[in-house]
Design a protein around this nucleic acid. Structure first.
Lengths: 133, 133, 133, 133
DNA sequence: GTGGTCTAGACCACC
DNA sequence: GTGGTCTAGACCACA
C-alpha cells in the first residue's frame, strides 16, 4: 500500500496518517472505501498493530475515517471536504518552508527562482526517462 | 542568535547543529571564532545545557568545531571546507524535496510554479513590512 | 422495536437486554409471549445474530426468558416477579445518579431543579411536535 | 487525586480525562498548573503509564493541557474557555438522559418531578449527616 | 527525572 | 475475522 521510513524523525503513526490522507486527497480512497485492517496493514508494514491502531484512531478523531467494531475502518463522507482544506495548507506549507530555508542560506529571490526551476526541469527530465523505461 | 522550534519532530540538538553549520556556511562564524558558551546559549534559548552540550559534542565529532576544556568551543579551520560540500547538497535538496512532496499531491509543474511564486511574493512582502518596523 | 446506540460504551448485548427487560417491566411483553427471533431482530437492528443470541442467553440465565430449541424464546412466568425488584432499583437510581453527577460539578439543588425542569419542558415540547407529525 | 472504576464500561483513559476536566471546571486546576507526572499518576492509580499517557495526549489534542518533553504537562490557558462549553453540555446531558430513561419506563412528568425531588431531598439529608460527622 | 514512541501480547465486544 | 483497551517494558529526546 505504501512505504514507511522507520529512521525518519516523523513518528511512524504520523507517516501512516499522512499517507492515508494523501490517498484521500488523490481520490484513491473515497467515501465509504474500506481501509486495510489493522492486522493486515501491521503485518504488511511489519509494524506493531498498536501503531496502526493509533494512526487510525487519530484519523477517526479528526473525522477522516470511521470505524465499526468487528467490521473495519472506512473513509468518512466528510473526508473529502476536510482534506481539501488540509491539502491547500500542506502544499502552501511545502513551498513556504522551502523558501524560508533557502532564505536562511541567504539566497535571494532570483537565485531561488533559478534553483527551483533547475530542479523542476530535472524532475521533468527524470519523469520522461521513467516513462520511456 | 537563532530560533528553535520545540514542536518540530526534528530533535532540538539537531536544530542547533543545523543553525551553527548555517552560520559557518554564511561566514558569520569563521575559523577560531568562539561559539556562545553552553550556559549562555541555554539560557537564551531556554533549553537545558545538556541539549546544547550534545549539539556541540556532535559538531566536534564531525570536525566543525573544537573545544578547549574549561575555556569554550571554537570553529575549526577545517569547518569551511567541510561545510562547502554540505551547503551545496542542502541547497539543492531544499527545492528538490519540495517539488517531490508537491508531486505526491499531483501538482503539475505549472501549478508548482504558481504556488512557488505566490509564496515568494508573500515572503518579499512580509520582509518589507519587517524592514519598516 | 427499539433503538441501539452503537457509539455508547455500554455493550450492545447489554443494551438489548435492558430493552427487553424494559418491555417486560412495562407489560408489553408478558409471560409466554414469544420474543422476536434472533434472525428477525438481527436484521432489524442490523446486528450480528451472535450479539442477539448472547443477550437472549444471558436473559435466560437470569430467568427472564426461556428458550425452546428450534422454536424460539419466550418470556418466563417468573419474569414479572424478577422485574419488579429491578424496576424500582432502576427508577430510583436514574435520578439519584443524575443528581450525584450534577453535584460533582458543584451544582446546588436550586440549579439542579432549574436544569431538570428546563429539560423536562424541552422533552414535553419535542413530544408534542412528534405527535403532530 | 481521584478514583477510577476499572469495572466500568467507560474506558479508564476516558475516566481520567473526565476527572481532570472536572478539576478544571471546578477551578481546582487552573491555567499553567502542573498535572501529576505520568509515572506518578500511574503508580498512584496502579495503572500502566501508557493509559495515563493516552488520557493526557487526548486532553492535549483537545486543547485542555499542553506538554513539554522532559518537563511535564500543564493546564492550558484556553482550558477554562473550553471547559465552560463542555460543562454546560455535560450538565444538560445528565438530566436529559435521566429524563429519557425515566420516560422509557413510562413515568409521566409529574411522577418524574416527584421522584427527582424525593432524591434531591434525600441527597440534602445525607449531606447534612455527612457534615455533622 | 520528564513525556513520546514503539513493540509484544493479552482480553474484550462484536461479526 | 474485526477494532478497542490495557499491560509490561523497551528506547529516545530532553531537563
Amino acid at each position: 500500500m505504501f512505504k514507511i521510513d522507520p529512521s525518519s524523525y516523523v513518528p511512524i503513526y504520523e507517516q501512516i496518517k499522512k499517507e492515508i490522507k494523501l490517498k484521500i486527497a488523490l481520490g484513491i480512497l473515497e467515501a465509504n472505501d474500506p481501509l486495510p485492517s489493522i492486522r493486515e496493514l501491521s503485518s504488511e508494514l511489519i509494524l506493531n498493530p498498536n501503531t496502526i491502531a493509533r494512526a487510525y484512531r487519530e484519523l477517526e478523531m479528526e473525522g477522516f475515517i470511521f470505524s465499526k467494531k468487528g467490521i473495519g475502518c472506512y473513509v468518512s463522507r466528510r473526508s473529502s471536504t476536510l482534506i481539501k482544506k488540509e491539502r491547500l495548507k500542506i502544499l502552501d506549507g511545502i513551498f513556504k518552508e522551502a523558501i524560508e530555508k533557502a532564505k536562511k542560506y541567504q539566497l535571494n529571490s532570483n537565485e531561488m527562482k533559478k534553483l527551483f526551476e533547475k530542479n523542476l526541469a530535472e524532475m521533468k527530465k527524470s519523469d520522461k526517462q521513467g516513462e520511456n523505461k
